[in-house]
Amino acid sequence: MDALNALVVFANFVLIPATAYGAQLALGALGVTLIYGILRFSNFAHGDTMAFGTAVAILATWALQAAGIGLGPLPTALLALPVGILGAMALVLLTDRGVYRFYRAQRVKPVIFVIVSMGVMFVYNGLTRFVIGVDDQRFADGERFVISVREFREATGLAEGLALRTTQLLTVVVAIIAVALLFWFLNRTRTGKSMRAFSDNEDLALLSGINPERVVLVTWLIVAALAATAGVLYGLDKGFKPFVYFQLLLPIFAAAIVGGLGNPLGAIAGGFVIAFAEVTITYPLKRVLGYLLPESLEPDGLVQLLTTDYKFAVSFGILLVVLLFRPTGLFKGKAV
């Protein structure tokens, strides 16, 4: 019984939140890794692309709510997600036309793109605040729980409860669908294969008649879709704050690099590694251990290795260790 209770506590406070968070990071890291693989730079504006896409989706959600259109138990934001995706696509395509394409034509070194993307990041930052304001926004509606703590306790008779929020389940389901679609696209379609070929060997891709501008366009479209999806899922799960998306850039980069930059599979693995590490290390494990250990060994403290304020330190700790011992990432990335 104690072991079961320990498992339930662990699932409730670590397993489920970390899985949802990991899925959000993985979607974000996929976008970063695609840009790195094909446009050859780390896109610092990615977090704010997510924020902008989410802001558009929130506005659409409010419009739908005002019109009385909903999805019943599911959040209305799911219906608004395509609008958010379109918003993010429009934004990145305009940016590419106006900014990045100029530098591509100059054939500038990739590091210049990195700095340019930082400039773009600040512009997006401001733009998002203009569109939706600087305050926190809650836009989740519908059924709050798939399983609530009370229902779980009544059903199982255990002392500990387990809650599964709708947004958490939704995050994982949507992430699985998005990733499956992405991999199908990259591995099975002509355009997807041409993107991989372009990432692999740009010159040979040109000689094979692959149009680089088209590859870049499709990449931005996919990245915008991934970013808006990740942003909306994160916002549903944890609430929308413009600044948090900027901060989210850090664990997203860590995930992409830990997994191996340029490698989509690595981005997903990296997302979950970072998420589980962050949540496990910042969660006080006292209650879990209390069930598992004999009374004499029961910990006095909280067994919280770091407070949640330091969660980014965890990402960066992992990042440093990986870069020191396995610089190409867990999965072989593109020669980091």
Partner: peptide
């Protein structure tokens, strides 16, 4: 290489 990929 953690922020840029070598150009061919």
């Amino acid at each position: 290489r953690s922020i840029t990929r070598e150009a061919p």
